[in-house]
């Protein structure tokens, strides 16, 4: 499955990337929201994993943009900090499909991604 990861912290980005590579996914990493939007446009991934607070373009804007574009079917998993229920709610209103709170377990993330990939098959 083609996955775009948008996360500004390098360590977290890499961790997710390596974990998902191990599961056999094709992963594109973006260090900020702007790059993410460009990449999403270009490669049309089957799943987006996005942090909320990112430079230039926030995760909410990514959700809003993708869900209002001609590719609203791409599922989006939101990565959020603990206690950001308000924002997660907002993300769901905008059409986000799932969320994971930080701190998160890479194994759990992998399972959730698997669920999406099965659904698409």
């Amino acid at each position: 499955m083609k996955i775009v990861i948008a996360e500004d912290d390098e360590l977290i980005r890499k961790t997710i990337q390596l974990r998902l590579l191990k599961d056999g996914h094709e992963v594109v990493c973006c260090e900020n929201g702007l790059v993410a939007l460009e990449q999403i446009e270009k490669i049309r991934p089957q799943l987006i994993i996005s942090d909320i607070m990112m430079p230039y373009v926030t995760g909410l804007e990514i959700v809003g943009t993708v869900k209002q574009s001609y590719t609203p079917e791409i599922p989006i998993i939101i990565l959020s900090g603990m206690g950001q229920e308000e924002i997660v709610l907002e993300a769901f209103q905008l059409g986000a499909d799932d969320f994971i709170t930080k701190p998160f377990s890479p194994n759990e993330l992998s399972l959730r991604v698997k669920r999406f990939s099965q659904r698409q098959k």
Binding site: G83, E86, I87
Partner: peptide
């Protein structure tokens, strides 16, 4: 600052 971003 992230704490402040979301708390009521």
């Amino acid at each position: 600052y992230r704490i402040l971003a979301s708390t009521e």
